[in-house]
Nucleic acid binder design. Structure first.
Length: 411
DNA sequence: TCTGATGATTAGTT
DNA sequence: AACTAATCATCAGA
């Protein structure tokens, strides 16, 4: 982009100031000659109006020649030539011609309307860095938000606060590197802009450079530097993502549900063994009671069903235990099956609980679940599975809740 | 340290 | 979309 601009690319780095050889800008200079030669009315440049037109042309030719060869000279030579050119008696005339040509060709305005809207990718990166607490004022809100989100969804216990502080310190490290680099880029951008502006100002003594062009040049430089900034922001985002996945990945930070939560879930599961598929409402209710999310409830039931099915025998004792609890709860008129008898551990006679389940009536007039008695020592309650599927699997009535529908099995 | 338990994830199925 | 089955990653007790 830079090299397309007639007023740029004079190679500020080559230190020669007026290096113009092979530059597009030379078209303008060449056209000076043509313009002056073909001017029909003599114009107001006064070139044709001199006493001797031929001499004038030769003068201009000399100047152009000097300009053309200026880049082939040493720095000192070039500076001296430049000074001589600036003092040349024809310089004002040449300058005004350049101005005129520029105005006529609209050179300065070419591509002037290339203002781009703000890069949406950059906006996204900015938003993300802001949300993560990397950009913007330091408040640790991003980290705190991330931590709290992970905690609420993963049932994370407070004892992981140690890791949280580790996370925060790492995040602040990223933040500090990010700001240092950003500052460096901004400083470099400012320096370079100042440098180019000085060059252009100096050049404006030799050729017409409008303030608008300088502005455009500055904008171009800023765009270039902002693309570097985008890369920095991208890298920072990646670093934050990696950090997050390492420290806050719920899977890595798995915590067992509380004992009480597991009891609530188990109670529901075993009291709905014929159809352990809680409705959305029931899941929400269970989630509320257990202090976990609905999707965690779904996960739990998914895992429970498959593990129960795979090894019914292993779960029989547990099933009998919860059946007993449910029975006791029902007998005491307790309408909440989720407040189990806290002493409900250990050795109950299992016959009672088994009866509870063996006597399960068909749900909504459906079939009686096929009984698969295991050869375990206890009376089996693994009645619900036939051909590897739960019988009559269907969603409970929409109004079903852990409170309301447990009775379907327990009586 | 080993091993079973368990919550989460994922690909495939209904 | 909800579910199953397999698998992963971690926890927790022996």
């Amino acid at each position: 982009m830079l090299q397309q601009q007639p007023l740029t690319g004079n190679g500020p780095s080559n230190g020669r100031g007026l290096g113009m050889s092979g530059h597009p800008g030379m078209h303008a200079l060449n056209s000076v000659r043509q313009a002056s030669q073909h001017r029909p009315d003599g114009g107001d440049s006064g070139l044709e109006g001199t006493e001797n037109g031929h001499e004038t042309r030769r003068d201009i030719g000399d100047i152009l020649q000097q300009i053309m060869t200026i880049t082939d000279q040493s720095l000192d030579e070039a500076q001296a030539k430049k000074h001589a050119l600036n003092c040349h008696r024809m310089k004002p005339a040449l300058f005004s011609v350049l101005c005129e040509i520029k105005e006529k060709t609209g050179l300065s305005m070419r591509n002037a309307q290339e203002e781009e809207p703000q890069d949406p990718q950059l906006v996204r990166l900015d938003n993300m860095l802001l949300a993560e607490g990397v950009a913007g004022p330091e408040k640790g809100s991003g980290a705190a938000a991330a931590v709290s989100a992970a905690t609420s969804s993963g049932g994370m216990s407070p004892d992981s606060s140690l890791e949280h502080s580790d996370y925060k310190s790492k995040l602040s490290q990223i933040r500090s590197i990010y700001h240092t680099e950003l500052e460096k880029y901004e400083q470099a951008c400012t320096e370079f802009t100042t440098h180019v502006m000085n060059l252009l100002r100096e050049q404006s003594r030799t050729r017409p450079v409008t303030p608008r062009e300088i502005e455009r040049m500055v904008a171009i430089i800023h765009r270039k530097f902002s693309s570097i900034q985008t890369q920095l922001k991208q890298s920072t985002c990646e670093a934050v993502m990696i950090l997050r996945s390492r420290f806050l990945d719920a899977r890595r930070k798995r915590r067992n549900f509380s004992k009480q939560a597991t009891e609530v879930l188990n109670e529901y599961f075993y009291s709905h063994l014929s159809n352990p598929y809680p409705s959305e409402e029931a899941k929400e209710e269970l989630a509320k009671q257990c202090g976990i999310t609905v999707s965690q409830v779904s996960n739990w039931f998914g895992n429970k069903r498959i593990r129960y099915k795979k090894n019914i025998g292993k779960f029989q004792e547990e099933a009998n235990l919860y059946a007993m609890k449910t029975a006791l709860g029902a007998r005491q008129g307790d309408d909440s099956p989720h407040t189990p008898n806290s002493t409900g551990s250990g050795s109950f006679s299992l016959s009672g609980s088994a009866d509870l389940f063996l006597g399960v009536p068909p749900v909504n007039g459906e079939h009686v679940p096929e009984l698969h008695c295991s050869t375990k020592t206890h009376t089996s309650i693994s009645y619900t599975l036939a051909n590897g599927n739960w019988q009559g699997r269907s969603s409970p009535p929409s109004g079903a809740s852990p409170h309301s529908d447990h009775s379907e099995n327990s009586d």
